[in-house]
C-alpha cells in the first residue's frame, strides 16, 4: 500500500467526517467528567482543517500534516487543540518532503504523533488520556511492521486501541479537568482516548478501502 498527497487528504477528510458524526457522542462523554465541549471543539477544528486543505493544493505530505496541526492548534482550543495539534505537527516533521507515503511511513506518523502527545501532555499510559488508546495501537504497529499482512496488522492495532478505550473506564483520571474528580472519574470512558480511537478507525478504514481500489 502507498498513497500520494491527494490520498492523504482523502484519509484526513474521512477522519473529519468521523469526528463530525460523533460530535454529540464525544460531547456527552466529556460532560460526565470534563467540560462538555470535546465533540464540539474537535468537529469545529476538523471542519477548519478540511476547509484549509481544500483551499490550497499541497504535494508534500509532511506539509499537509503540519497544516492540519497548525489549524487544530488555532481552532480547537482547550487541551485537545495543543495535544492533537502537536501530534500532527510532529508527524508532519517526520515525513517532511515526501510526496507519497507507504505503510512504514504510516507507522512513523503514528509513532511521532504519540511522542508529540506525550511530550505536550506529559502523560503516560494509565492516566486516562489519549495515550491509553494510541500507545497500544502504536506498539502493535511497531512490533509487526514487517509482517506480510498489513491489513491484519492494522486491524490488530485498531482492536488494541479499542481495548485501550475500554480500559479508561476502569482507571482514575490523573490529567486534565477530570483529575479533580479523583475516584469519581472511574466508570467513565475517556473522551480523548475515544476521539483518538475514532480517528484511527477512520484512517484505517480509508486506507483499506483505497488499497482495495488499487490506490
Amino acid at each position: 500500500m502507498a498513497t500520494d498527497a491527494a490520498g492523504l487528504v482523502k484519509i484526513l477528510e474521512k477522519v473529519a467526517e468521523k469526528i463530525s458524526e460523533n460530535r454529540e457522542f464525544l460531547t456527552e462523554l466529556d460532560s460526565a467528567i470534563g467540560d462538555a465541549d470535546h465533540g464540539i471543539n474537535m468537529s469545529k477544528g476538523f471542519s477548519a482543517v478540511v476547509e484549509k486543505l481544500h483551499s490550497q493544493k499541497i504535494d508534500d505530505c509532511g506539509a499537509i500534516l503540519k497544516t492540519v496541526g497548525m489549524t487544530l492548534v488555532s481552532t480547537v482550543g482547550g487541551a485537545s487543540g495543543p495535544l492533537y495539534g502537536t501530534a500532527f505537527m510532529k508527524a508532519g516533521q517526520a515525513v517532511a518532503g515526501k510526496s507519497s507515503l507507504d505503510f512504514q511511513d504510516f507507522v512513523t506518523i503514528l509513532e511521532q504523533a504519540l511522542e508529540g502527545i506525550k511530550y505536550r501532555g506529559k502523560a503516560q499510559r494509565g492516566e486516562k488520556t489519549i495515550v491509553d488508546s494510541l500507545e497500544p495501537a502504536v506498539d502493535i504497529l511497531k512490533d509487526e511492521k514487517d509482517s506480510g499482512d498489513k491489513g491484519l496488522v492494522m486491524e490488530k492495532a485498531l482492536n488494541a486501541a479499542k481495548e485501550g478505550v475500554e480500559y479508561t473506564r476502569s482507571i482514575i483520571a490523573k490529567k486534565g479537568r477530570a483529575s479533580y474528580l479523583g475516584e469519581r472519574s472511574i466508570g467513565h470512558q475517556d473522551p480523548g482516548a475515544t476521539s483518538c480511537y475514532l480517528m484511527l478507525q477512520a484512517a484505517i478504514e480509508k486506507i483499506k478501502e483505497m488499497s482495495v481500489n488499487g490506490l
Binding site: 495543543p82 505536550r120 490529567k175
Partner: peptide, 11 residues
C-alpha cells in the same frame, strides 16, 4: 494551572 492553559501558553 489548568491543563489547557498550561499547554497553550507553553506552545
Amino acid at each position: 494551572n489548568y491543563t489547557g492553559d498550561v499547554m497553550n501558553f507553553e506552545m
